[in-house]
Design a protein around this nucleic acid. Structure first.
Lengths: 301, 301
DNA sequence: TTAAACTAATTACTTGAAGTTATTAATTGA
DNA sequence: TCAATTAATAACTTCAAGTAATTAGTTTAA
């Protein structure tokens, strides 16, 4: 039993006439008779009640007609679904991200993508960089927005932007009079930073920069929450730092000042599995790299 | 795309190895490779990501795998359903009947049939004889339990039993002293019968019998409801009649007496469309004519 | 590094079933 | 009775599905 026989059967069941059904199917009548006979033999059931001049559906034939129509319909559905998945028109996309993404590329990217591909089901997960790398390798997410450098094995990584760090201090703080604070002015200041485990590159980088200038930073508080750090800074507990991309988040009771001659940058980029066959991912990357002012890493397919 | 390709695809998707999948399918590896390539070409989608030594499912391939399994499953379901419908093991059966059927063959017939064919969906409709003939011709019912004679065109009709009529009267009625009431004793009695339109054969037959004996019956009441007629009879309004098969329904406040030399019988039988292909019907008829003491009219098939 | 093993694709050939034309057998209607 | 209609059958053709043998590339192990 194959789809051809199902299609033939439905045609005969609808026409109740082998000749007309054969015309409709663009084959000759004997071929059709033979196929239907083969189908009946395979099923072991009489599908049509024939006389020499008339044809009608048997009871079992009515049952089979319904089934055959269902099967033909489901076949077309299967083809459509597969093709649309192949083109990325439908599908699932799981995206890992850090807070930086929500302040930069994500809003417009998602808006543009969903406008073009409204049937793709997007799943967002906020994860630290390390966790995103693990999630990529475990196939738990398709795309990561994270902070390189990372272990790139099996992954494609592409930079999106760089963040620079600003000092955050109360408006009445002595250092607030600077437009740009010299790094060594921080030598005697109490500092509030985020924990090393949540961003070792940045933490170690900061310590390194301080050592270059010749002092050991005086860290009085560590907190993973930006809001907490800002709160302590506003209270005068110490100076903290934020990415220049987060200036909109600091609020009115603190001020931001750049750091003079501070070579401290945080990279931000996208990463995905080299071998990914998720076309929705490729469509999203296309939009992403059409938008960000970088040369697209996407290969022609 | 046919079922063969779906089966091949599922095998490769499960083995992720063309050689092993080909073994499982009892074909050679090149044939399998060619079929999968043909399927991918037809769909216009890469279903597998191949290297020279490894095979894995693409994203679209995963979608198609689910669809393919569904289709193969539904194919088997379709075959089973059709075969079982063909054998009468499943299906629908719509049965028309008169009250006589419920007092005679129906209870044991339904019990035996449903014990043997529990998956057949039976639909019972109480209809007068004429309405059943119309329902048969309109394909609204598959089997009728009715009172011949009827218009037999296109129908198979088979007798099941004959009913004889008994007079029903109060226990203190003068005629209750007879074991068998002479018909002419009814000449001066008020009579209660059921309306002509609900059973013209019986009504006209009764009038004819009375005329033969030499009197015009004195009908004081017509009612279609057996209970109503019995009630009037018990109240002494007049004598009524019931089929000998309904003695169990008359209750204790009236008595039944046979009629002497009264050639008034009511036929009862089954009727169905000659051309019916409903195998459940044939199975039911088989049980019916195994039970009733008549030679079965069923032809060997 | 080289050789052996492994794996999917390719090539050339065979076979079977799906289709064709022509014909038959039976029914219907003029 | 004869022409028209219709499904089945028979004989033949064609195309695609399968086979065996080979190729090309990758991995594993000596």
């Amino acid at each position: 039993m194959d789809f051809r026989q199902l299609q033939y059967f439905v045609a005969v069941a609808e026409e109740l006439h082998f000749g007309r059904a054969a015309d409709r199917l663009q084959i000759t009548q004997p071929a059709l008779s033979k196929q239907i006979a083969g189908l009946e033999k395979k099923l072991g059931v009489q599908l049509f009640v024939r006389t020499k001049r008339t044809v009608e559906l048997s009871h079992a034939g009515q049952t089979f007609l319904h089934q055959a129509r269902q099967l033909l319909l489901q076949k077309e559905t299967a083809i459509q679904l597969t093709r649309r998945t192949g083109s990325g028109d439908i599908g699932n996309l799981s995206i890992g991200f850090t807070i930086t993404a929500t302040q930069t590329v994500l809003p417009s990217l998602l808006r543009d993508f969903l406008q073009r591909y409204p049937n793709v089901d997007i799943d967002m997960v906020e994860l630290a960089t390390e966790a995103q790398v693990a999630a990529l390798n475990e196939d738990a997410i398709d795309l990561a927005f994270l902070h390189p450098p990372i272990d790139q094995r099996g992954l494609e990584v592409h930079p999106i932007l760089e963040e620079q760090f600003l000092a955050v201090l109360p408006p009445n703080h002595p250092l607030a009079c600077y437009d740009s604070i010299p790094l060594d002015a921080l030598a005697d200041e109490p500092l509030i930073i985020h924990p090393r485990q949540e961003g070792p590159m940045l933490y170690d980088g900061f310590l390194h920069v301080c050592q270059m200038v010749g002092f050991q930073p005086h860290i009085v508080k560590e907190s993973i929450s930006l809001q907490t750090r800002l709160c302590f800074a506003a209270a005068g507990v110490g100076i903290t730092f934020v990415s220049d991309r987060f200036q909109g988040l600091v609020g009115g009771n603190v001020v931001c000042r750049s750091l003079e001659n501070c070579p401290l940058y945080l990279e931000f980029g996208a990463a995905w599995r080299q071998r990914s066959t998720n076309s929705a991912l490729h469509n999203l990357l296309q939009i992403l790299f059409d938008t960000v002012p970088e040369h697209s890493p996407l290969k022609a397919r």
